[in-house]
Design a protein around this nucleic acid. Structure first.
Length: 418
DNA sequence: GAGAATGATTATAC
DNA sequence: GTATAATCATTCTC
């Protein structure tokens, strides 16, 4: 006990002494006779007896009234409260100042980061403060009824497991919009439950405080003790808050992991979708960069997302270009080989070295109508100038000089893909 | 089961 | 923000 507390304690004792004198209650030193000590002991014993007695409502009311009106009551309660403070409460006081729970802080941070909880909705330390301030727990020695909350938390888990299983069974992907929707659902459930939690805390705290105030008329309860009780309730409810937040975090984590897994999972587009995309690509070979509107239209036709259309065109362009390069490389190798053979057999051939390596030029026998092998191995009927350009490029590149190849690529239609 | 095809992701450049 | 190039992971084909 420090000096200040000691001083207050002494002052309290002096005040009590005055009060006892005022009410004519015998005190130690006043009259040290054993008989008076015995009287005080008797009074205390009576109070204890009243506490132990089971009374019906009428009796209780009557006795409470009697006790409340007793002239010695305020002084006696004051002394008893002081004794309680000195014994029980002082021991517990040292345990009350605790730092914020780091685990709760971590959960708060995650919920804020995921957009489930905001600062206004119980995020961070303010959330803990709100929760604890609003705490309204059960009676100290009776277990707080967690079952409702546990049932709710189990419900949250159940909802998300069910939904996610549904996705798995359908074999469908969790798309961005689905992810957002699910996250919003988590947010809504969390906020609803948190609101209920806060309300329950407030109601229960108010109830307990009122109860203790009422009881303080019939038994010595100091304001400090009521505060301490609120603190105990606060701790009990903090456990519920922790469970709620943990479950929400768990749901978010599961959703995230499933979402990322789903994104990783590749599923081939339908044949129709591939056909539509290929048609567009081949018919816009001179400029295979669909506008946003065109992408949306293609996405709608193919029943895929716009970003999938973008991916598809990105892949298509790069692979188309790569394939052209590969064909050119093979053609060059073949041309070199043929040229070498021609040199060995002077006068044996007409010098049309690459004629055998037919890439669909007009000389290949595919005719002016324009059949050429596209990158998927599909035969594509084209009327586009760019295709003619490509048809032109291939035999030339299969020709004999890099210059001729480059000249062909310099044509505007194809340069888009370089 | 191996290799090719294909959709998605990531790093980088503009 | 978009395109490219490289790469990963899955699906398809033989």
């Amino acid at each position: 006990m420090d000096d200040q507390q000691r001083m207050m304690h002494n002052q309290g004792q002096m005040a009590n002494t005055n009060v006892l004198q005022q009410y004519g209650i015998p005190q130690q030193g006043d009259d040290p006779s054993d008989q008076r000590k015995q009287e005080i002991g008797d009074i205390l014993q009576q109070i204890m007896t009243i506490t132990d007695q089971s009374l019906d409502e009428a009796q209780a009311r009557c006795r409470k009234h009697t006790l409340n009106c007793h002239r010695m009551k305020p002084a006696l309660f004051s002394v008893l409260c002081e004794i309680k403070e000195k014994t029980v409460l002082s021991i517990r006081n040292s345990q009350e100042e605790e730092p914020p729970d780091p685990q709760l802080m971590r959960l708060d941070n995650m919920l804020i980061a995921e957009g489930v909880a905001g600062p206004e909705k119980g995020g961070g330390s303010s959330a803990a403060a709100n929760a604890t301030a609003a705490a309204s727990g059960g009676q100290p020695d009776s277990a707080i009824e967690h079952s409702d909350y546990r049932a709710k938390l189990a419900q949250i888990r159940q909802i998300y497991h069910t939904e996610l299983d549904k996705y798995e069974q359908d074999g469908s992907e969790i798309k961005n919009s689905d992810y957002e929707a699910k996250l919003a659902q988590i947010r809504q459930v969390y906020q609803t439950e948190y609101g209920k939690y806060e309300q329950a805390c407030n109601e229960f705290t108010t109830h307990v405080v009122n109860l203790l105030r009422e009881q303080s008329r019939t038994r010595p309860i100091a304001p400090k003790e009521i505060e301490r009780m609120v603190g105990i309730i606060r701790k009990k409810f903090a456990a519920i808050e922790m469970q709620l937040k943990q479950s929400t975090c768990e749901a978010v984590m599961i959703l995230r992991s499933r979402f990322l897994d789903a994104r990783r999972k590749r599923r081939n587009f339908s044949k129709l979708a591939t056909q539509v995309l290929n048609d567009y690509f081949n018919s816009h070979l001179s400029n295979p960069y669909p506008s946003e509107e065109a992408k949306e239209e293609l996405a709608r036709k193919c029943q895929i997302t716009v970003s999938q259309v973008s991916n598809w065109f990105g892949n298509k362009r790069i692979r188309y270009k790569k394939n052209i390069g590969k064909a050119q490389e093979e053609a060059n190798m073949y041309a070199a080989k043929t040229a070498a053979a021609a040199a060995a057999n002077v006068g044996g051939h007409d010098g049309q070295g690459a004629a055998g390596y037919n890439l669909g030029s007009s000389q290949s026998g595919m005719g002016g109508g324009g059949m050429y092998m596209n990158l998927n191995g599909d035969n594509y009927q084209s009327s586009d100038n760019s295709v003619n350009t490509l048809r032109h490029v291939m035999p030339q590149s299969a020709g004999y000089s890099n210059d001729s190849m480059h000249n062909s690529y310099d044509q505007p239609q194809v340069s888009q893909l370089q």
